[in-house]
Nucleic acid binder design. Structure first.
Lengths: 192, 192, 192, 192
DNA sequence: GACTAAACGAGACGGTACGTCTTGTCTTTCG
DNA sequence: CGAAAGACAAGACGTACCGTCTCGTTTAGTC
């Protein structure tokens, strides 16, 4: 897989088909939305995409990786880093954007499924953290670090976990909504 | 549970074997600890317990339900409700006890697996919430309700989700430990 | 097992319920006629008869034995031994009676099932031969032995097998009917 | 079998493995000979053949079909059609060859099992008749048709059923052997 | 009228095989 | 050589019955 930095052997053979790749990612999201994550199978994705199973196995190690890539492709990659000059406003904006992303149909259920998969598969846990979770934590940490004196909790560590902890706990358990009231309460708790 | 005082239909047929039930719950925990939750199968539990598969399916609808019952049986049922007269002390004691329970070998990995299963199976999600999560939330809510004026967050709702949110987020993502420092920071954040 | 001829030790305990026995035999025939022999199970017979499984196992070693006993009970036990004074008439009468018995609904399919079971279970093969097949062979042999000079085949042995062989072969393979024409041809073949 | 000379869709995908097919048929015969037909299971055949269960279910609808194909493969396909110029000699030769085939170890017990299965499964009954029984009947009918004037019974129909009826009846009931004496008696009965 | 003892309905139990499903690999042909 | 097709080994799934067992209940003698 790794090759010498200088000499590019110029890849031989038929190149990867981007049409097939797109079809597979699309079929994955379709199926997860239609029949649910657990009921979605590699075989089903292949059939739905008009692809061979081997083509999926050639490029992704598991169903979860396909779905994560599909999510990262289709979902808003960009996490806005608001900058209104004070913590309250920035945090409230961040939470509003995050909640809005989560309200897009299917997004939350996919995230729950991927978080579940990460609990059952250590390899994917690492992938999920590095390609999804860590990025969101970093953005929030960056935001908080701008106003260290306005943040009641240890900016770099605890506050981030408090925000995402509450968000994920509510998403995973489903006992309470992710709504404006929550955003407001969180801001109230964390900002002086 | 309660029955009409006089008439009791008196159960017919061979009664359920409590030895078998115990063997199954034991085998389930054993296997999950040994080979992991995903690798544990109903078939394996049955073989390990010297039981028939049907005996498991007769009493539990899924592997997750077996493991949850085993956990509730073997794990500390009791969640202590400390009462030292002030929020800081009580909360710190509660967190210490909770972390201690989590440090018992295998407990955290079982909890992660059950939370994962709850994401993939709506029926089990309800069972897990009602037979595990809700109870813990209630205990903490009860504790917080004793000192409404000392708690910075909305005692009944947000504070509970903050505590368990952070705990679960760290347990599920594994990027940071559940240690004394965390307990202390949480107390600092939530109590005046 | 053997006991003195005169003194009956008088059996203790609850005596066998003939109502239950009848219900079981009836349920067996009912089910075989309704859903087929293979689909009939001991469990189904018990439920249908309002009996416990153990009650069946206490008195019969297998489903086939139950069905055979039910057949011998309900079906015409008596095989008429016609005596018109000459082989042609007696044989024709015997065949007519035999075919008539076989035309009773369900009888042939039960016989086919029992013959099948006899091929798969050596113990039942013996029971089936002694409690059903042998008796029919004996009656026919007795009939033929009355006219040794009118029978073209070895009266005691071959002719019997020819008659029952053709009957069973047609019943088992189903390629041709058991009808009057067959009876006539057989008589023509076997009697001078 | 025959295909249009020019257009051939050319089958796609991995072709069926003939090695696996052979292994399965061999394992089936092995097991039936070793432990008996009833005790032989699809699961056992698969394990014995080093094959997956699905591979068996992909190509055969039931255990009986596997065993029948194995029998037709390994057993003498060819039924000799003797031609000595007169019915007595030809019939005697046919019977001798048939009995010889039946004396090969395991053959008779397999045939009995397949005939049993045919009684319990209407679909297989048709397959068994068309792929086994009918062929033998046809050969014998062809033989008899050559000497219509020498055959005492209705050549095309009754005589065939008499021969195979006696054979099968003795094979299934087991009360008498299939030996030279029987062959001789049958010839005596059927040929002028 | 209590006591003994076996039959009975009910249904749990340890097993085993079923036929289906999915996984991840392999072996073809086509483009 | 990538990709579609689909066969393959492996093995768990959840179901169905098997034949055995353990209950409480019933129904006959016997004391």
């Amino acid at each position: 897989m790794l090759r010498a930095s200088t000499s590019e052997p110029s890849p031989t053979g038929r190149p990867r088909s981007s049409a097939t790749r797109t079809a597979i990612l699309g079929a994955a999201l379709d199926l997860v939305a239609t029949i649910g994550y657990r009921e979605t199978t590699i075989e089903g994705i292949a059939k739905h995409a008009g692809a061979g199973k081997q083509t999926i196995y050639r490029w992704w190690p598991s169903k979860a990786d396909v779905v994560l890539e599909a999510l990262n492709e289709n979902a808003a990659r960009e996490i806005p880093l608001p900058d209104e000059g004070n913590l309250r406003a920035d945090l409230e904006a961040f939470l509003a954007a995050t909640f809005a992303a989560g309200r897009r149909p299917g997004v939350i259920s996919v995230l729950r499924a991927l978080m579940a998969e990460a609990q059952l598969d250590a390899r994917f846990a690492k992938v999920f953290d590095q390609n999804f979770l860590r990025h969101r934590r970093d953005v929030l940490a960056q935001l908080l670090r701008r106003y260290p004196e306005q943040c009641r909790a240890d900016s770099g560590t605890l506050a981030v976990d408090v925000v995402f902890g509450v968000l994920w706990y509510r998403a995973l358990v489903g006992h309470r909504n992710l709504d404006h009231a929550l955003a407001h309460s969180l801001v109230e708790l964390l900002a002086w």
